[in-house]
Each structure stands twice: as C-alpha cells, then as structure tokens.
Design a protein around this nucleic acid. Structure first.
Length: 296
DNA sequence: AATGTATTCAACCGCAGTCAA
DNA sequence: ATTGACTGCGGTTGAATACAT
C-alpha cells in the first residue's frame, strides 16, 4: 500500500493558485466533470499535479462552498460531532453543507479547541478539565477588524473574480441550492467503517463509507441525528443563511443501494443514540462509547 | 516606526483504502 | 493473490498578516 507522490513535481507549479489557474480548472471541470485527477492537469492545461487540482477544487472552487462566517449553530454542531467522531474532519464536514474538511479542521484548531480549553473542556476528550485553562480564544477577536481582513480582502478579490464566472454558469444549475455532499467514490465494500467515513446522503454518489453507513442502517435518520439538523437549503443562494432552512434528510431522495437493514441491530443502535441525545444531561462517556461502537 | 510574536488558513505531504489488470 | 494506479484523508507547514511591545 501507499505510493510515491502523485507526480514527479518536476516543472510543476506549487503554492498559491493564480486566478488563471482557477479559471482553467473550473472551466475544465464544468466541461468534463470531476475525477481523473491525475490526467486532469495536462488536459486542462495546468502545470499542477492532480492532487493539487483536486484539493483546490474541493476546498475552494466548488460552487457550493461557503466560506467564513461559521455560525454559532455550526460551531455547536462541529463540537458535538467532534465529540462523537474525533478528528474525522471529512465526516464532520459531511454534516456541514458547504463546509470543507480543511476549513473545519483549521477552524477547530484555531478557534474551537482554544475555546473549549478556555471553558475548561479538553478539546480532545470533551471532558471537563480539572481547572479551566485561561486561554484567550484569540487576542485579535476583540478587534472588530477581521483578524486577517486585509489578507482576506486580497485573497477574496482573487477568489471572487474567478468565482464570478463560475457563479454565472452555476447559478442556474444550483438554484435553489441544496447543499449536497461533495461527490465521492462509491465502493461496494461492506467490510468496515474507516477513518474517512462520511454520513452524507448523496443522490448521485457516495463514499464507500457513507454508503456503508447507509447500508448499515443509518440511511435517513442518521442525517438528522442531531436534533434539528438536516440539510441546509440556501433558498436565496446568497451565501449567508438568512433564508436558509433546515430540511430533514427524509426530504431528499437518499437511497441506499441495498436494503438498509441487515438485521435491525443498527436500527436499535440508532434509537439508542437518539435516546442518549434526548437525555438532558447525558453522560459524555455514554456517547463516546456509543460512537466508538460504530467504528469498531 | 521598527521589531518580534501570534494567528490564520491555503496548500502540501505521506499514508491508506479501493479498484482493476 | 499480487501489484500499481487512483483517490481521499488527516496532519503539518509556511507565507501573509495582525497584534504587541
């Protein structure tokens, strides 16, 4: 297993993407779709390795990406999911429409873990620390100016420029915008749930793992496993959530490709999980052990 | 104003799972 | 069963910037 880096990197561009590269990549994917990352750069006229292209697309150029302004609700959800799933960022991202694993990982490392610590919670175990660690979440936060405001402006300008073209093309396609999970590979393996598992519900594709989980019985209900959480639908497609509303996973055509129950055991597990959540002051240990039981 | 330190986050790296030959 | 290619993931890095002194 494992392999050498995906390309020799000889003569390939690295570092920040230019608007021109973004445009090339976006247009190519609009025309030909995602996938075949290894051969994509050559075909798209990019001097990048496939990995870099994929990352750029997944984390930045996809039309359904939301950037910044993580809401308190999202905060809360990230923390809850992290307490259950640990550093399975892609899995967590799968529950936050429009958010990428990279963004959530960064956000966790730079904001949430500090905040939890300052509140006396161990960000790794989500258990109370003996004494709260007095850590300022961020010194710069008190400044109303965006901490990286200037940077962001600069970068945002770049991004927006390239995004404008995309938006014109995509708007028609993605309105009303339903933040479906990112496209992922489908496999037929039923074997086990791995680190990159995702609960996302996808009408056209799914990771092996999300599929596995659906196959394992979490088809629709799991998508709502946090009370009040479902898919965010951005009615006005304005990037914020002023008019967004939550849609129950059952409102979508979330299809398992195989019967969702194998023996009903997992359905019981799910019920058990719901009960744990409903309990006002459920024991974190119970939740932990429950989550662990899903991944063994 | 200059310098040092802290913070943020896009991008990279290496590993691992899956598939197909 | 083996092997190489492809893809996706989490951890890490480093440039850019903000903040503090």
């Amino acid at each position: 297993m494992g392999r050498a880096p995906c390309c020799s990197k000889v003569g390939l561009h690295r570092g920040p993407w230019t608007p021109r590269e973004d445009t090339l990549l976006t247009k190519y994917i609009q025309a030909h779709g995602e996938g075949h990352w290894r051969s994509l750069p050559k075909k798209a006229g990019l001097l990048r390795c496939g990995k870099s292209c994929r990352l750029r697309w997944m984390n930045y150029l996809r039309p359904d990406i939301k950037r910044g302004n993580i809401t308190p609700d999202e905060d809360d959800l990230i923390i809850r999911l992290h307490s259950l799933l640990g550093n399975r960022w892609s899995l967590i991202a799968g529950r936050l429409p429009g958010r990428t694993d990279n963004e959530i990982k960064n956000y966790w490392n730079t904001h949430l873990s500090k905040r939890l610590r300052s509140q006396g919670t161990d960000p790794n175990t989500h258990r109370k620390l003996s004494e709260p660690v007095l850590v300022q979440e961020t010194k710069r936060k008190k400044n109303t100016k965006n901490s990286k405001g200037n940077v962001k402006k600069k970068k945002q300008q770049t991004v927006n420029k390239s995004k404008t073209d995309r938006d014109q093309v995509e708007q028609e396609i993605f309105r009303p915008k339903v933040h479906l999970p990112k496209p992922i590979r489908v496999t037929t393996s039923f074997s086990k749930i791995r680190r990159n598992d995702s609960f996302e519900c996808n009408t056209t594709s799914g990771t092996s793992s999300s599929q596995e989980i659906r196959e394992a019985g979490f088809d629709v209900p799991w998508s709502n496993f946090k009370e009040g959480v479902g898919f965010l639908v951005d009615d006005d497609d304005d990037g914020d959530h002023e008019h967004d509303h939550l849609v129950s996973g059952s409102d979508f055509e979330c299809q398992s490709q195989v019967p969702t129950q194998q023996d009903g055991t997992l359905e019981k597990l799910y019920e058990e999980y719901l009960q744990l959540l409903k309990t006002e002051d459920h024991d974190q240990v119970e939740l932990d052990s429950f989550a662990e039981s899903l991944f063994v």
